[in-house]
Every structure is written in C-alpha cells, then in structure tokens.
Design a protein around this nucleic acid. Structure first.
Lengths: 345, 345
DNA sequence: GTGAAAGCGCTAACAC
DNA sequence: GTGTTAGCGCTTTCAC
C-alpha cells in the first residue's frame, strides 16, 4: 500500500543529478512554482521563495540548462567562429565576449575554422554549432561559403559579424573599415614625407583589403608603387624578419613599411636591427593591432589601434538584446580605429 | 474537411526548425529508425539509410543536440576553465582542445576565471558550466576553492587538470613538474658557470613553484641567493622591462635571469638593450614557454619548451575515452618539458 | 500567486 | 532490422 516509487517496468533514471522536481517536493510546492522562484522570483510569494531557495541550497541543485533550453527554445548558448586563435588578433574579442556573455548567464561555444580550406571546415563547423541551437552566432571576419550564409539565414539565429564592415551584412555587424585603415596609414606616411613605401601583409582577406587601399593611396599621391611582400596568415615574427630581408634585397631604398600585424612589425624591427638598419631614421615601421607589447618595444611601435574588446562586448550586447526581444536601435556599428604614433615612425 | 494541422487547444510549436520526426515521415520510417540511421548507420538497412539520408538533405535537417543530450545524458559538450587567455600561455592548449574535440563531434565551452578573486569567479563559473551538463571539464591549473572541487566530484563529471602535476588530482591529469623546470634551469645555469642569478616571476601559483625550486637549487649549489622580482600575472613585456630596471638597480652584478614567461623575457631583452647591457655576454636570459616568437628574436631566446598543444590533445583524448566507456590505461600523464638553448644564454 | 497538463525533440528500453 | 512506448528535466499554456 505504500507509495514508494515502485521500480516500474521501465526504469530510465537519468543522470542521477538533483532535479527541479526534488527541489519542489522538498519545498512543498509544484515544480512549476519552484521554476518560477528561480527564474522570476518577483512573481512568487516571499515565503515560497525562501523555502525554494533553502531546498536548492541543501540539495545542491544545479539547473539542467539542456532541459531548460529545450523547453524554452532559448539555450543561452552563443557560438563564436574564429579563423584561428594562433595570432593574438581575435583573442581579445573572444575574451571580452566570453566575459560579457557570462555576466548575463550565457556561455560561449568556440569553433575554429582555420585559415586554410575555408569552405569545408566552415560549413561543417557551422552545422555542428547550429545543432546546439545557440541563441546567437558571432563571426569574426566574413563567411566564405554561400551555403553557410544560407544555412544561417534559414536557422534564423541572430548573427553578428565582427572585424569587418561588409556591405551586405547577414544580420548585425560591428567592425571597422580596412580600406579606411589603409588610407589613414597612407595619409600619415605622406604627412611624414616618406617616399618609398612597402607593405608586409598576411594573406587573409581583411589584410588584403588594407593592403590594396594603401597601395592605391600611394599611387593617388603620385608616389612610386608600393612594394608588397605577402606572408601566410596567421602572421608570425619570423615571417616579418624574412619579409624584410626579401624587401631590402629588392628595394634597398624603401623608407617606410606598413605591416599587417604588430607581430610582423616586431619581426621587421628585429631584422632591421640585425641588419644594422636604424629605425626610424633609415626605416619607419608601422604595425597593426596595438597588441599589448607594441608600446613597450624599443623603439616603441607606431601602430593602428583596434579595440577588439569593445567589439566583443558590442557583439554580446547585440545578441542579448535580440534574444530578449529588444530590437537594437542600430545593428551596424563602426567602432573605428586610431593611429598611434610612437618612436618607430 | 482538410486535415490541416488544426490549432488544437494547446499549440506550442517550438523553434520551427525541421525535426527528426519530419525526416522520418519523409523517409517513411519511424523516428527511432531515422535516429539510428544517423547515429549508428551500420545497424540499419542500406535502403533505409539511403532514404533517410535523402530526407535529411532535402529538408536541411540539423539534429537538435539539446534534445539529444537531454535524452541520452551525453551532451557532447566539454567545458574548459582557464584563468585567462590574455597571456598566450594557455592559448595553444585551448586551441588544440577545441580542434581535437570538434573532430570527434564535441564542442568546447569556454569559461574564464580571471587570476584575481579566484574563489568567487571560479565557483560561479563552474556552476554555470555544470548546468550545461558537459561530458567533461578541463581545468588549466588547479582549482582554488575546496567547494569547487567538491561540487565537481558530486557532479561526477570527468575532469582533466592540465598544466600541473598535482599530488592529489581530482580525476585525470596531464601536466609537468614546475619544480622540475626550476631545477633544470638551475642545473643549466650551474653548467654555464653563471654565478649571480635572478628571477623575474609572475605571481600565479605555478610560476611561484618554479621560482621556489630554482631558488632552492641555487642555495644547494652554494651560490648567492637568487634575487627575485615578482610581477603580476598575466605577464607582459612591460613588466619585464620594469623588472630588469629594478633588478639592475639593486643588483648590478647579476649575470643570468630566468623569466617565468617568454613575454617577460622579451621585456628583459628589450630593456637590456635599451640600457646597453649586452646579452648574453653581460647578462644571460632564459624564458619559459617557447612561444612562437622566441626562436626568432635577436638574440634568439633560450627557453623552456612546453607542448601546450599536446596537453590539449591529451585532455580531449582522456575525456572522450571516459565518455565512451573506455577506462584510459593511465589517467596521469607527465608530458615533460625541454630546455632549448639558444643565443640568449 | 499557484498549479495541472502538455509538450520541447530526441533516445533508452523493451518488444516483435 | 524496425517499431512502440515512455521518458530525459524543464517551461509553456491555460485554468483557478
């Protein structure tokens, strides 16, 4: 006659973890009430809230977000797709994204596409991530595959593109103009009176756009064509050294180099010293990114400052706004950039 | 009279995404058969497999892993907790972890605890992650809070600690001996004939252990006590420069410095040059980590090579083995380290 | 303010 | 090899 939970024909007791059900029982309320006490405490009487809180404490209850996400179709997961984390470029963005999301109870899932073989890696990665039903996806850089773009639209998941200013964004966007950077550096070089420019550039799409704008500006200014050395992304100090060696062989009279990353610039600086070429007197060097070491190099590196952390925060903000039903007033933000002049130019 | 899906009393159509149900219908089989076709194709007849595959294709079905995880109590999510990603130290580990997991259909969730205020951040972060019911948790460094350790044990989630060789591991472990590193560098310094040693060390626990072993070895070798400059973690180039400045003021006759990160070493190298102190002739410099720039600095940096990527892969391997029911033959791996002698010593 | 019922989309368990 | 049934643990909808 006792109502002990009879081990009925089919037992399938799940993980063994404490469930909301048990919390509710202990608190003497219905499960749904316990749920409300946790998710919208203001809609529940103070006593009930107290009893539920106690039950949670004493049982060590940790809500199962898989179940919650399934029931509510809000997973509170956000996916980020980065080409790579090898270069420290996207690092800050990922970092601030992780943090900003965590503060709001969201978690970040990380996916890397790799610079090489973008089509396959990207598509597969994206499908894997969509399977988790994230509440949003943050892209660093643009999506290469048209199929991927389509899939994203179909899934109707809020998307934030970062690190670029695409003309036809998939959805939301926070970035800056790479062409603008190229032109700004060119203007700066003109103002400085540099005549023979060079560029050491990674072969990723964004870097190429900076490079092109930079080269065009040189022509427009009536200067000799820019000598360019292309290096594989992600960029390393080593590539910078090699690039400068190559450069000086072909064009010894170069007087200013724009590097597509601070790491490359460090390489150029290093090689210049090894070759006894004084910076900035006989060679001006400009970086990109303003990584934390740039200001403290010898000579201190002039560079283009990009606020990666701000991009991460803004992306988090965009997605959370959307999830909570708010329509962000503007879903395209140009966070700009800033030229930082230091000793190397 | 048509049988259009009548909006019955309770409609709650979820996300609107294609479900396994629809795939099954289209393929003319039961849902569970469709499920099997996707998860264990070898247990299903070729024709059925074909029909299901086609249905998946034409409908653009992406399995809902939230639901799958809930039903099977296997989320295929792995959580990683890092103190920070600011220093590039853990970067490689996170990177290779992400990749190794993705190859097996697992995704990584990232959580940062921050070096400061470890107790609160860590506990909260951990609870948030456990709520996702990950199949495993990877820790970089040790857990500070006892409550956190307890919570982990209670949750019965496979845990891999990395970057350290704790005496009483929570579960699985892949790391190396920081004391061993300190002693090895000391042995090397002795062999080189350096007499007055110094150390520039971050204030994180692992760095402190390297420092202590290093200092003790100096005493054991009958050398003057090691002069130590402590800098806040995460370490930066700037701290390295400041530290050397400080060091040379108090102890101008120092002839060898061991830095607790390559970034610090770069700072020391930079400051040494700024002060006209020749490396390695008047000051030997040793780094830690063998980051990708170390080999190409001028002078090339001697350092302690740590295979962060291998740790990530091993951690992924450990967790997946455990999830699939295999008991790894040995759940503690010392991946060691390697002294790399270059020009800076 | 609280609760009962009915799913969310999938898979484990048991048939046949 | 395939299907039926009954959940996984939570939240939505509707009712009081």
């Amino acid at each position: 006659m006792s109502l002990a939970p009879s081990p009925s024909k089919r037992s399938r007791r799940g993980s063994g973890a404490v469930t909301l059900h048990e919390v509710a029982q202990r608190a003497g309320v219905a499960p749904i009430t316990a749920s409300r006490a946790l998710n919208s405490p203001e809609r529940v009487s103070p006593e009930v809230l107290q009893r539920v809180t106690e039950a949670v404490q004493s049982l060590g209850y940790v809500p199962n977000r898989l179940a919650g996400g399934l029931a509510s179709t809000r997973s509170r997961l956000v996916a980020a797709l980065v080409p790579t984390m090898a270069g420290p470029v996207f690092l800050q963005t990922v970092q601030s994204l992780t943090q900003a999301l965590a503060e709001q109870g969201y978690q970040l899932m990380l996916g890397q596409t790799g610079y090489s073989d973008p089509q396959t890696g990207e598509d597969r990665m994206l499908e894997a991530l969509i399977g988790r039903r994230p509440d949003g996806i943050v892209l660093t850089g643009t999506l290469h595959s048209a199929q991927a773009r389509q899939r994203l639209q179909a899934a109707a998941i809020p998307v934030v593109e970062t690190w670029d200013l695409s003309e036809r964004p998939i959805d939301m966007l926070v970035g800056f103009s790479h062409e603008g950077v190229g032109r700004a550096v060119a203007d700066f070089f003109v103002a400085k009176g540099f005549r023979q420019w060079a560029m050491v550039a990674g072969d990723d799409p964004r870097s190429l756009r900076r490079q092109q704008a930079f080269a065009e500006a040189a022509v427009a200014a009536g200067l000799p064509p820019v000598v360019t050395v292309s290096v594989p992304a992600p960029t390393h100090l080593k590539s910078g050294r090699q690039a400068l060696r190559q450069l000086l062989q072909h064009q010894p009279d170069v007087d200013a180099v724009f590097c597509s990353s601070d790491l490359l610039a460090l390489g150029v600086l290093t090689e210049a010293r090894a070759q006894g070429r004084a910076v900035p007197d006989r060679l001006a060097v400009m970086g990109f990114g303003d990584l934390d070491f740039a200001a403290d190099l010898e000579p201190a590196l002039s560079t283009v400052q990009i606020d990666g952390a701000a991009m991460g925060r803004q992306a988090a903000h965009f997605i959370i706004s959307r999830v909570e039903g708010r329509v962000p007033p503007c879903s395209v933000v140009d966070i700009g950039f800033r030229l930082v002049e230091r000793a190397s130019t």
